[in-house]
């Protein structure tokens, strides 16, 4: 897994690439916790380059949503497609998370 961060219009854009599974999810969670406790409460998570997500990865997303909820923050997922999309569909995540087809659309949610 590789995590890249940039700030656009006060929104943190996370680009996740590679695999988000049992091995990499703890690292993802650690980064997210640091960013949220550092004051970032608006997130766009770009899954354009995410190849695979496991249940541990899903848990990471849930933790993120929960932490943001506590701080009145928000998150929006972008480019959830392919394998990742079918996992989302299967476990009902589609109904829990806001999802957009591109980063710019996702950013528009926060305007």
């Amino acid at each position: 897994m590789n995590l890249q961060t940039r700030i656009e219009n006060n929104v943190t854009v996370l680009t996740v690439s590679g695999r988000l599974d049992t091995v990499t999810a703890p690292e993802y969670e650690k980064n997210i916790r640091e960013m949220i406790s550092g004051g970032n409460i608006k997130f766009v998570v770009d899954f354009e380059q995410l190849e695979y997500i496991s249940s541990a990865g899903l848990r990471g997303l849930l933790v993120m949503a929960k932490l943001l909820n506590e701080k009145s923050g928000r998150m929006c997922l972008a480019n959830v497609k392919g394998n990742v999309r079918s996992v989302f569909d299967m476990c009902g995540f589609t109904s829990v998370f806001t999802m957009k087809d591109s980063v710019s659309e996702a950013l528009a949610v926060f305007v």
Partner: peptide, 27 residues
Amino acid sequence: AGHNPPLILDSHGVRYLTPKPGLMLGA
């Protein structure tokens, strides 16, 4: 609750069931 779709093996062959998606328990 967010689980992989099961399969049915009957006289029509083998096929995946397409249950309605549901969020996993505890989320």
